[in-house]
């Protein structure tokens, strides 16, 4: 019996940017063999230059990745993937626009050979506040974002993301929010338990942000910036300092301390702040 495959669910409403993110993750896979699961190929436009060969329900992609349509039958699709000569390292399931990622996650928990790594839900900064106020869709969008353990804000280049961040803080308090640019394969495909996250659920209306820490950073400088920001009330997370050592940053109000990071800690700093 081989180890179960970690499954990350990528949710979010129609047009939130799921397909764009999937293509970027495939491009940046860095040797990980990612299997992308879509309800049907009609749902996902994989960039043509990534495609190496197309079959009926399996598309071979560059770098050993595959894209698989599962129709109504996720179990069989996953068994097929596990039986490949070079099985994938991780599964990335793109949920359709009105699907409930939490329900898919619960169903995945029943499947042999799969373990749920996490649920990332995308929020389109140009639409999310309106969707959360839509008479037909509000409860669907709420259920989607509440099921997430990571919220990724997209299209911030088109509009100010602050209203979306505030709306997410109200709808899904305590779930870390990060810009989609921070969504590296390491972050999105990481097991939920290994992701930086707040230790406690905070009161509604507080913003929970995830600051990526991919590049070496001066921890003191970052901590000073956070301490100087009157909105930030707490911060905790790991980063690599300028000499290449992992460091743990912990901040409450304006007090902070920087210590050696525990071994194996995921990189990234979660901040809790009051809204603007």
């Amino acid at each position: 019996m081989t180890a179960p495959l970690p499954l990350t669910i990528l949710g979010g409403y129609l047009g939130a940017g799921k397909t764009r993110l999937v293509n970027r993750l495939l491009r940046d896979a860095g040797g990980r063999r990612i299997a992308v699961l879509v309800n049907d190929f009609g749902d996902l436009a994989v960039d043509a230059d990534l495609i190496e060969a197309e079959g009926d329900d399996l598309i071979a992609l560059a770098g050993g990745c595959v894209c698989c349509s599962y129709g109504d039958d996720l179990t069989t699709a996953i068994a097929t993937l596990r039986a490949l000569p070079a099985p994938p390292d991780v599964l990335l399931l793109e949920a359709s626009g009105v699907a409930m990622p939490g329900a898919i996650g619960a169903a995945a928990g029943l499947m042999p050979g799969v373990t749920l790594a996490g649920i990332a839900v995308l929020a389109d900064a140009t639409r999310l506040p309106a969707l959360l106020a839509d008479r037909y869709l509000a409860d669907t969008i709420e259920r989607q974002v509440q099921a997430a353990d990571l919220l990724l804000v997209t299209k911030s280049d088109l509009t100010d993301p602050a209203p979306t961040e505030a709306a997410l803080a109200r709808a899904a308090p305590g779930v870390p929010v990060a810009p989609v640019d921070a969504a590296t394969p390491a972050l999105v495909l990481a097991r939920h338990a290994a992701r930086p996250r707040p230790e406690t659920r905070h009161a509604a209306r507080h913003l929970t942000r995830l600051l990526p820490a991919d590049a070496p950073t001066d921890p003191d400088a970052l901590a000073r910036d956070l301490a100087a920001d009157p909105r930030v009330t707490r911060a905790k997370g790991c980063l690599i300092d300028l000499s290449g050592h992992p460091r743990l940053l912990q901040l409450v109000g304006t007090d902070y301390e920087i210590t050696a990071a525990p071994p194996g800690a995921a990189l990234g700093v979660v901040t809790i702040s009051v809204p603007i």
């Binding site: 409403y13 129609l14 047009g15 626009g97 009105v98 409930m100 037909y136 869709l137 409860d139 669907t140």
Partner: peptide
């Protein structure tokens, strides 16, 4: 099924959409 207010008699949460309004 998707119900308008007052929703399900036994208090069950509202049902599921199987298509987006856009589609």
């Amino acid at each position: 099924a998707r119900l308008r207010a007052p929703g399900y008699f036994n208090g069950a949460p509202n049902g599921l959409w199987y298509i987006t309004p856009e589609h």
